[in-house]
């Protein structure tokens, strides 16, 4: 049974992630008063990328993107998906935090090898932005881990399901609010879209990708969206007992992200980091202090 889920959960994540990509294009189109592409448009595009001729810039160029995607797949194995968690006992949230590094690191290495300054600029922005949202994010994660006194994600979810989700319990609600405030940054949506910025730095890190490489990057994007949203649902929205409810919760979170995405222009990276280190950090910090003081 466990083996089955080991195989299935990346596939489910891929399907959900691709559905989310298609859905978000559709929703954005409707907000723009357009029809938009069909829901399966990302699939068409990935298929097209894989049948095109790719241009490689060196061994690391391919290796980096493979590493990045593999890292994302492993993270998915560690994340509970509505009662299913394939690898629950191998290090918990700390491993997840670290495995989440592999995805940006792989892209950064492979984009750097491409020798295109657009890619380098994009990567430098990505890393700075990540430093920006990691501070409130770590505060949130630590508040949750301290409150439930465990580093295991499965335990965090089950503890929330026994009592109430973090959003509905007192000191943790602050962490939840802070998480909402940084969610667009973690998903790379506007106003924190400065990493890719197609009009400005030609999609940043992925400027030099073509053919199958671009296909893998698109899959990677789908998985990253899945990971970002499911982490949110698991950490502060109590996960779910079955995959279907979990999926519905993810949809709601995605919709929130999309509405923010549609309403805001792009921030410069300094503005973004300044925002992230101001309000979300402050709220998350207060949340952590309350958790520590009330918990004792």
């Amino acid at each position: 049974m466990r083996i089955l889920w080991l195989v299935l959960s990346p596939l489910i994540a891929l399907a959900v992630g691709l559905f989310f990509l298609g859905l978000s294009r559709r929703v954005m189109a409707r907000i723009h008063w357009r029809y938009g592409p069909p829901l399966y448009q990302p699939l068409i595009e990935i298929f097209r990328y894989f049948t095109q001729k790719g241009s490689s810039h060196g061994v690391l160029f391919g290796l980096g993107i493979v590493l990045s995607l593999a890292g994302s797949i492993v993270v998915i194995l560690f994340l509970p998906f509505g009662g299913i968690c394939s690898m629950s006992g191998s290090g918990g949230m700390l491993v997840v935090l670290y495995m989440m590094l592999l995805a940006p690191l792989g892209i950064a290495l492979s984009g750097g090898e491409a020798a295109n300054p657009n890619a380098s600029i994009g990567i430098s922005r990505k890393l700075m932005l990540a430093l920006g949202y990691e501070l409130p994010f770590l505060l949130i994660v630590l508040a949750i881990m301290t409150h439930y006194d465990t580093i295991s994600l499965v335990d965090i979810v089950s503890a929330q399901r026994e009592t109430a989700s973090a959003f509905a319990s007192f000191p943790l609600v602050l962490s939840g609010i802070a998480y909402l405030l940084i969610l667009p940054a973690m998903l790379g949506m506007r106003p924190f879209e400065v990493v890719h910025a197609p009009q400005e730095i030609s999609s940043g890190p992925i400027a030099e990708y073509s053919g199958p490489y671009l296909g893998l990057v698109t899959i990677q994007h789908a998985l990253t969206t899945f990971i970002g949203i499911s982490l949110f649902v698991n950490l502060v929205w109590g996960g779910a007992g079955n995959p279907f409810v979990f999926f519905l919760k993810m949809l709601v979170v995605l919709a929130f992200g999309l509405f923010v995405n549609a309403a805001f222009p792009r921030l410069r990276v300094e503005q973004a980091v300044r925002y992230l280190w101001r309000w979300p950090t402050l709220i998350a910090f207060v949340g952590l202090i309350l958790v520590v003081t009330l918990g004792r």
């Binding site: 294009r25 189109a29 029809y35 938009g36 592409p37 068409i44 197609p198 030609s202 030099e208």
Partner: peptide, 13 residues
């Protein structure tokens, strides 16, 4: 975009 036509950022895409 209805027909799948969108502007690409670089010729590689």
């Amino acid at each position: 975009e209805r027909f799948g036509v969108i502007p690409a950022a670089t010729p590689r895409h």
